[in-house]
């Protein structure tokens, strides 16, 4: 009998509380729900929509499409330089190596270290900075697409080339030097690839289109594996070496060239534009998008030594 009374009372109480909770939550929803949810972004405004739609539906001949940049100069020049880290070189954490291949994916029993930000302790050079010309009006013979292939190897569950830049038309030889299978997954805006690579075999992939920024390369079997891949329409691109140096030869001289600089450790995911605010960057009018413009004289050999503060690399 007592249990019954207790149950009934608690039931009434619970109901009271439930109803009250329901009511309050609903009131909350009422208050918040009716407001325009900021985090969902704005909705279109009819007036601008009408105006823009008018522009889209009117004839397409409003503008003579200029397309590619117009060549203004002659001859060729070379840009070389180095990215130097200003700060204490960061310690890379080991990869989160898991699963049955743990032993095969380790070096001397230790998981390999990440390569997000590699700084050479001697020269303080930053490796794997990508620098490329956004739009070239003229392309030198040596920078034209060729049929050389680029070896993209993986061993001990590490992509041996951390950033693979290439010219559209070249082939990427995806090699597996491990005794177990991998798969190589490229998720680009325009290049998508996901194929399994058996042990000690090689596949080829020929990107058909250029990417505006490097895109990620992953292995689903070993999800910690990470690399980047950048196909460009011409050979005017470079990835800095271990000492942070790069060279782009035979760029068109006598015209304004816009370079884009990218590094993996910038931005939210898959890297981002490297933005510099140092004096030498200011003199190049380095933009918020990690771009700078430069004009080289014929046969000039320009050297750019750029200091990169730790804060620019998310440090």
């Amino acid at each position: 009998m007592n249990t019954h009374i207790i149950l009934t009372c608690s039931g009434l109480l619970v109901r009271c509380r439930l109803s009250a909770a329901f009511l309050s939550v609903v009131c909350f929803l009422m208050v918040t729900g009716c407001q325009r949810a900021e985090e969902l972004g704005p909705v279109a405004e009819p007036a601008s929509v009408a105006e823009i739609r008018q522009a889209f539906s009117s004839g397409a001949d409003a503008l003579a499409s200029d397309g590619a940049a117009i060549a203004t100069g002659t001859g060729w020049a070379t840009l070389r330089g180095q990215f130097v880290y200003d700060g204490t070189p960061p310690q890379m954490k080991p990869y989160d190596v898991r699963g049955e291949d743990r032993a095969k994916c380790s070096r001397a029993g230790k998981a390999p270290l990440q390569e997000t930000l590699l700084v050479d302790p001697e020269t303080m050079g930053i490796a794997n900075v990508v620098i490329f010309i956004r739009d070239a009006a003229r392309v030198h013979e040596s920078a034209q697409p060729n049929d050389e292939s680029i070896v993209f190897d993986q061993k001990e569950c590490v992509f041996l080339t951390h950033v693979a830049a290439m010219t559209v038309g070249q082939t990427l030889e995806i090699k597996n030097s491990d005794p177990m299978g991998h798969n190589t997954k490229i998720e680009g805006r325009k290049n998508v690839f996901n194929q399994s690579v058996p042990a000690n075999e090689t596949l080829v992939f020929s990107p058909q289109k250029e990417e505006p920024v490097p895109v990620s390369v992953a292995c689903s079997i070993h999800p910690w594996m990470a690399a980047y891949f950048l196909p460009r329409a011409n050979g005017y691109h470079a990835v800095t070496g271990a000492d942070g140096s790069f060279e782009i030869a035979n760029v068109p001289a006598g015209e304004v060239l816009e370079f884009q600089v990218w590094h993996e450790s910038v931005g939210a995911r898959d890297g981002g534009p490297l933005v510099l605010e140092t004096p030498e960057a200011k003199s190049l009018k380095w933009s918020r998008k990690g771009r700078f413009k430069i004009r080289l004289e014929e046969n000039e050999e320009k050297v750019l030594n750029l200091t990169v503060p730790a804060s620019a690399l998310g440090g």
Binding site: L18, F22, V26, L29, T32, G33
Partner: peptide, 14 residues
Amino acid sequence: HESAGGVFQLAVYF
């Protein structure tokens, strides 16, 4: 409406 998801979630739990 955007709150529909919240109402549904609440309704399911209740």
